[in-house]
Computed example of a mutant assay.
Amino acid sequence: MTVLRHIIFAACYVAVAVAVALALPLAGVGVDRSYGLLLGLVVFVFGGLLHEFYARMEQAERLEDRLDRLLDRQRDVLAALDRLVRPSAEAGGAVAAVVSDARMLRTLADQMPAGGPSRRKRRCPSVRRQAWRTLRRPRARPRRPP
C-alpha cells in the first residue's frame, strides 16, 4: 500500500469518526455529547483496524506474488542446472578421465624442481625451426633453355 493510499484511507475513517462524534448529539436521538464522542472513538478504532487489516492483506498478497516469482526462477535455474549436469552424467567416464588426468598432472608438477626448467641450450633444433630453415633457403633458379 502506498503512502498516498494510507493517507486517503486514514482520512476517510477519521472523517466518519468525527462526523459520528459530532452529528449524533446534534441529531437529537437522545445521545448526549460524551456518548457521541465514545461512539466516534469506536468508529475511529474500527476504521483503524480495518485499515490495518486491509494493509496487511495487501502486503501478504504482494509477498505471495514475489514468492511465486522466486519459485518460478528457482525452477528455471534448477532446470538449467539439470540440463548442464545431464550431459556430463551421460558422458560418464569422460569427466572422470579428465579429472584423473588433471590430478596426475598436478602430482607431476609437484615433483618438478623448484627452479623450473633448466636454462641450457638445446643441441638439436626443433622440428618447427628445421621447417622454417628449409622454407628460407634460397632456391636454385631454374635454368633457361638455350
Rank of each mutant, 00 (worst) to 15 (best):
V3T: 11
V3F: 11
L4K: 14
L4H: 09
L4A: 14
R5F: 04
H6Q: 02
I7K: 03
I7E: 05
F9S: 05
A11S: 13
C12Y: 01
Y13G: 00
V18G: 02
V18T: 08
V18H: 06
A19Y: 14
A21S: 00
A21R: 00
L22R: 03
L24M: 10
P25D: 01
P25R: 02
L26T: 11
A27Q: 02
G28R: 03
V29L: 15
G30W: 01
V31E: 00
D32M: 02
D32K: 03
S34M: 10
L37H: 05
L39H: 01
L41F: 14
V42T: 14
V42Y: 10
V42L: 15
F44V: 04
F44I: 06
F46R: 02
G47N: 01
G48D: 06
G48S: 14
G48N: 10
L50Y: 08
H51Q: 13
E52M: 09
A55H: 08
A55Q: 07
R56C: 08
E58A: 15
A60M: 10
A60W: 09
A60T: 12
D65L: 13
R66E: 15
R66H: 10
L67K: 12
L67T: 11
D68R: 15
D68T: 13
R69M: 09
L70A: 08
L70Y: 07
L71Y: 11
D72G: 15
R73K: 13
D76G: 11
L78V: 15
A79T: 15
L81N: 14
L84V: 06
R86Y: 03
A91C: 01
G93W: 00
A97F: 09
A97V: 09
V98W: 01
V99Y: 04
A102C: 11
R103G: 05
L105C: 05
D110E: 13
D110M: 06
M112T: 09
P113G: 04
P113L: 04
A114F: 06
A114V: 10
G115C: 01
G115S: 07
G116L: 07
S118N: 12
R119P: 00
R120S: 08
S126C: 03
R128H: 08
R128W: 03
R129W: 04
R129F: 05
R129L: 12
R129C: 05
Q130V: 12
A131P: 03
R133E: 15
R133K: 14
L135C: 07
R136C: 05
R136G: 02
R136V: 01
R137G: 07
P138T: 13
P138Y: 06
A140V: 07
R141F: 03
R141D: 09
R143H: 12
R144E: 10
P146K: 04
